[in-house]
Lab assay of single mutants.
Amino acid sequence: KLATQLLVDLAEGCHTHHFNSLLDIIEKVMARSLSPPPELEERDVAAYSASLEDVKTAVLGLLVILQTKLYTLPASHATRVYEMLVSHIQLHYKHSYTLPIASSIRLQAFDFLLLLRADSLHRLGLPNKDGVVRFSPYCVCDYMEPERGSEKKTSGPLSPPTGPPGPAPAGPAVRLGSVPYSLLFRVLLQCLKQESDWKVLKLVLGRLPESLRYKVLIFTSPCSVDQLCSALCSMLSGPKTLERLRGAPEGFSRTDLHLAVVPVLTALISYHNYLDKTKQREMVYCLEQGLIHRCASQCVVALSICSVEMPDIIIKALPVLVVKLTHISATASMAVPLLEFLSTLARLPHLYRNFAAEQYASVFAISLPYTNPSKFNQYIVCLAHHVIAMWFIRCRLPFRKDFVPFITKGLRSNVLLSFDDTPEKDSFRARSTSLNERPKSLRIARPPKQGLNNSPPVKEFKESSAAEAFRCRSISVSEHVVRSRIQTSLTSASLGSADENSVAQADDSLKN
């Protein structure tokens, strides 16, 4: 292990032709098999893994070397290190390495390699500790012929580059190093199909959405987006994914797998022009299946994007999809995704031109529960009313008269009656009930004795009459309010007539 670390330190600071010789020695160290011998017992696995620490030291050392060589000349050094790393990870899946030390190597290698970024000039870069990406002036992410390196360097940008540029090249004859992302992409596909350690798979799935944002990485080298989509959909639809995973937390289920895969599918929607129609349908189907899991909100957001990006695919699945959405409970976490999906859909009339009455009724059935102001915040309630109004205007004229009683009944049950079921009123009724029952229970537990009763009969009569009056008032709060309003209006009217009579009498006395 110490000798391997010494080789790594020497290679990191070497800029001459001896660098390749040092890498040859490190490569021989990495070539050791990580498969346990067949006769190895389970209690000896930890000791055997400790004997392979030099392999881990070599791989982690290459990660440090690549981070240094990416910004220094010659660029061919970075290319050689990158290829060695990718080849080593491929061996893991070729020979099915399952030892804990092998999983640790893959975890740290993917953690580093999935941080690679590219700008519009195809320059590769890595983020620093502050998250700012520094791009290399010597390494690009696409394949290029050595003699055409300078031509590639002087080509115009596709868009303004992001991030601070690296140091300027030493001279005009500098050759750019090619670090094609397709090599890593193929290893990522192998990981999605064969990885057995949940920690490694979770890391890859968590980092892929951010990497897919940099389309330069994908399009400048032959990366098959179709295969990526197929691998992701197979993970969700195939039963073998959960069987092969180990190291998963207790209670791990298909729902947890959906939570990890759906963000990658959402990021892949922007590549729909490069996906086969069959793959697009598979993607939409997987998102529909996710509606029954805890990732339902993410799936609804993804389907909203699909309705804009892939209208030809979503239009066929939309009638059944809208009916499925009615089975989702009206909760605060689902309110905004569902209502925004319906609001977006209302502005795309070509998608729902074939809707029948059942689909329009489903839209109103989804939106009406969110009009309850005692359960949802003001934004959700306003958005629900907006969706109902928009869809009522957009639905066909023959359907409107049939939906009017349905909508008014839903609004009455969710908006008007919600004020009668407020917690304050319920607590008031509970308190009044307890007050009504309390005197009775006290009389049963403690019967009054005439000799020891010091309270006069008049006081008892007053208290009983007050309790009886309170019971009468607490029967119905709404009736009490109505009666008080009527009494107030009658009182004001009587006072007004009394004032008029007094004024008339005063005038008569003055005349006399």
Results as ranks from 00 to 15, higher is better:
residue 200 V to I: 08
residue 178 S to V: 09
residue 64 V to F: 07
residue 54 D to L: 00
residue 76 S to T: 09
residue 189 L to E: 03
residue 173 A to I: 11
residue 249 P to A: 05
residue 249 P to Y: 07
residue 182 S to V: 06
residue 122 H to K: 05
residue 167 P to L: 14
residue 132 V to E: 11
residue 145 E to P: 11
residue 84 M to Q: 04
residue 132 V to W: 08
residue 180 P to N: 06
residue 237 S to E: 12
residue 149 G to Q: 12
residue 128 N to D: 12
residue 173 A to E: 08
residue 179 V to M: 14
residue 73 L to R: 12
residue 228 L to V: 03
residue 228 L to D: 00
residue 215 K to F: 03
residue 244 R to Q: 06
residue 238 G to D: 14
residue 181 Y to R: 02
residue 138 Y to D: 02
residue 225 V to F: 03
residue 184 L to C: 07
residue 218 I to T: 05
residue 53 E to R: 03
residue 70 L to R: 01
residue 240 K to H: 12
residue 92 H to I: 00
residue 231 A to Y: 05
residue 136 S to H: 01
residue 96 S to L: 07
residue 160 P to I: 12
residue 128 N to Y: 05
residue 185 F to I: 03
residue 121 L to M: 11
residue 175 R to C: 13
residue 244 R to F: 03
residue 198 W to Q: 02
residue 149 G to W: 05
residue 71 Y to H: 05
residue 85 L to C: 06
residue 118 A to H: 03
residue 84 M to N: 03
residue 99 L to I: 06
residue 105 I to L: 07
residue 217 L to N: 04
residue 192 L to Q: 00
residue 238 G to W: 08
residue 127 P to D: 04
residue 80 R to Q: 04
residue 133 V to W: 15
residue 130 D to P: 03
residue 85 L to E: 00
residue 190 Q to W: 05
residue 155 S to H: 12
residue 178 S to Q: 09
residue 155 S to K: 10
residue 230 S to P: 01
residue 59 V to D: 01
residue 54 D to C: 06
residue 139 C to G: 02
residue 75 A to H: 07
residue 153 K to Q: 07
residue 192 L to A: 01
residue 196 S to V: 09
residue 98 T to I: 07
residue 217 L to P: 03
residue 227 Q to H: 10
residue 178 S to T: 08
residue 251 G to H: 08
residue 202 K to R: 10
residue 85 L to N: 00
residue 206 G to K: 11
residue 60 L to G: 13
residue 239 P to I: 07
residue 242 L to Q: 06
residue 242 L to E: 08
residue 130 D to A: 11
residue 214 Y to H: 10
residue 105 I to G: 00
residue 180 P to M: 03
residue 132 V to M: 10
residue 88 H to P: 00
residue 160 P to W: 05
residue 224 S to Q: 04
residue 177 G to W: 05
residue 203 L to I: 10
residue 53 E to C: 08
residue 100 P to T: 04
residue 208 L to F: 03
residue 227 Q to T: 11
residue 243 E to L: 09
residue 159 S to K: 10
residue 66 L to H: 01
residue 235 M to D: 01
residue 177 G to T: 14
residue 117 R to L: 01
residue 137 P to F: 03
residue 192 L to N: 00
residue 224 S to Y: 06
residue 197 D to S: 06
residue 243 E to G: 07
residue 206 G to S: 13
residue 68 T to C: 10
residue 128 N to A: 08
residue 187 V to P: 05
residue 138 Y to G: 04
residue 78 A to V: 08
residue 58 A to P: 00
residue 85 L to K: 00
residue 62 L to H: 01
residue 71 Y to F: 08
residue 182 S to E: 04
residue 122 H to L: 02
residue 76 S to R: 08
residue 218 I to C: 04
residue 227 Q to K: 10
residue 204 V to S: 00
residue 216 V to M: 07
residue 153 K to L: 13
residue 83 E to R: 12
residue 91 L to F: 08
residue 84 M to A: 08
residue 248 A to G: 06
residue 240 K to D: 14
residue 202 K to F: 03
residue 173 A to C: 14
residue 183 L to G: 15
residue 177 G to V: 11
residue 221 S to F: 01
residue 130 D to V: 09
residue 186 R to G: 14
residue 149 G to L: 10
residue 206 G to T: 11
residue 249 P to Q: 08
residue 145 E to S: 09
residue 104 S to K: 11
residue 134 R to H: 06
residue 250 E to P: 11
residue 67 Q to F: 02
residue 87 S to M: 08
residue 240 K to T: 13
residue 194 Q to P: 00
residue 203 L to C: 10
residue 231 A to S: 09
residue 145 E to V: 12
residue 219 F to L: 13
residue 228 L to N: 00
residue 181 Y to H: 04
residue 209 P to V: 12
residue 150 S to D: 13
residue 140 V to T: 12
residue 54 D to I: 01
residue 104 S to C: 10
residue 55 V to Q: 01
residue 211 S to E: 03
residue 149 G to M: 10
residue 83 E to N: 09
residue 176 L to D: 12
residue 129 K to F: 07
residue 248 A to Y: 12
residue 201 L to Q: 01
residue 225 V to Y: 03
residue 147 E to K: 12
residue 82 Y to G: 01
residue 156 G to E: 09
residue 185 F to L: 04
residue 225 V to M: 11
residue 210 E to S: 07
residue 195 E to N: 01
residue 142 D to K: 05
residue 60 L to H: 14
residue 142 D to E: 07
residue 60 L to N: 15
residue 56 K to H: 08
residue 134 R to M: 05
residue 106 R to V: 01
residue 163 G to D: 09
residue 160 P to Q: 14
residue 157 P to N: 11
residue 176 L to N: 10
residue 115 L to M: 10
residue 176 L to M: 09
residue 241 T to I: 12
residue 191 C to N: 01
residue 90 Q to R: 11
residue 164 P to A: 11
residue 200 V to D: 01
residue 179 V to I: 14
residue 207 R to K: 09
residue 223 C to N: 04
residue 153 K to H: 13
residue 156 G to V: 13
residue 122 H to W: 02
residue 116 L to R: 02
residue 189 L to V: 08
residue 230 S to Q: 09
residue 94 K to E: 13
residue 54 D to Q: 01
residue 249 P to M: 05
residue 187 V to T: 05
residue 199 K to H: 14
residue 232 L to N: 00
residue 101 I to Y: 02
residue 226 D to M: 03
residue 85 L to I: 14
residue 230 S to C: 07
residue 206 G to H: 11
residue 97 Y to R: 01
residue 233 C to P: 01
residue 236 L to H: 02
residue 87 S to V: 05
residue 183 L to V: 10
residue 102 A to H: 03
residue 72 T to V: 13
residue 248 A to K: 13
residue 196 S to G: 11
residue 102 A to E: 00
residue 188 L to K: 00
residue 115 L to I: 05
residue 141 C to D: 02
residue 242 L to T: 08
residue 83 E to H: 13
residue 81 V to G: 01
residue 227 Q to D: 12
residue 74 P to G: 02
residue 77 H to T: 02
residue 56 K to S: 08
residue 130 D to I: 05
residue 123 R to Y: 05
residue 123 R to W: 02
residue 206 G to M: 13
residue 247 G to I: 05
residue 121 L to F: 10
residue 251 G to S: 06
residue 68 T to S: 11
residue 177 G to M: 05
residue 118 A to V: 06
residue 118 A to Q: 02
residue 144 M to H: 07
residue 194 Q to G: 05
residue 127 P to C: 05
residue 91 L to H: 10
residue 53 E to N: 05
residue 245 L to H: 02
residue 185 F to T: 03
residue 143 Y to M: 07
residue 184 L to Y: 05
residue 194 Q to A: 10
residue 154 T to I: 09
residue 228 L to F: 05
residue 132 V to N: 10
residue 179 V to A: 07
residue 185 F to H: 03
residue 51 S to I: 05
residue 86 V to C: 08
residue 217 L to M: 10
residue 197 D to T: 03
residue 211 S to R: 05
residue 105 I to F: 01
residue 68 T to D: 06
residue 63 L to I: 13
residue 232 L to V: 08
residue 81 V to S: 06
residue 123 R to H: 07
residue 238 G to K: 08
residue 186 R to V: 06
residue 165 P to A: 14
residue 73 L to G: 15
residue 250 E to V: 12
residue 71 Y to N: 04
residue 204 V to C: 04
residue 203 L to N: 10
residue 188 L to E: 01
residue 201 L to W: 01
residue 130 D to H: 09
residue 85 L to D: 01
residue 152 K to G: 12
residue 182 S to M: 05
residue 203 L to A: 12
residue 62 L to T: 05
residue 136 S to M: 01
residue 75 A to W: 07
residue 192 L to V: 08
residue 212 L to E: 01
residue 215 K to E: 02
residue 202 K to G: 05
residue 228 L to E: 01
residue 247 G to M: 07
residue 175 R to N: 07
residue 209 P to E: 08
residue 231 A to P: 01
residue 71 Y to P: 02
residue 103 S to P: 04
residue 49 S to V: 06
residue 193 K to E: 13
residue 181 Y to S: 03
residue 145 E to N: 09
residue 92 H to G: 01
residue 125 G to Y: 03
residue 100 P to E: 11
residue 72 T to K: 08
residue 135 F to P: 04
residue 235 M to T: 02
residue 193 K to N: 09
residue 49 S to E: 14
residue 244 R to T: 05
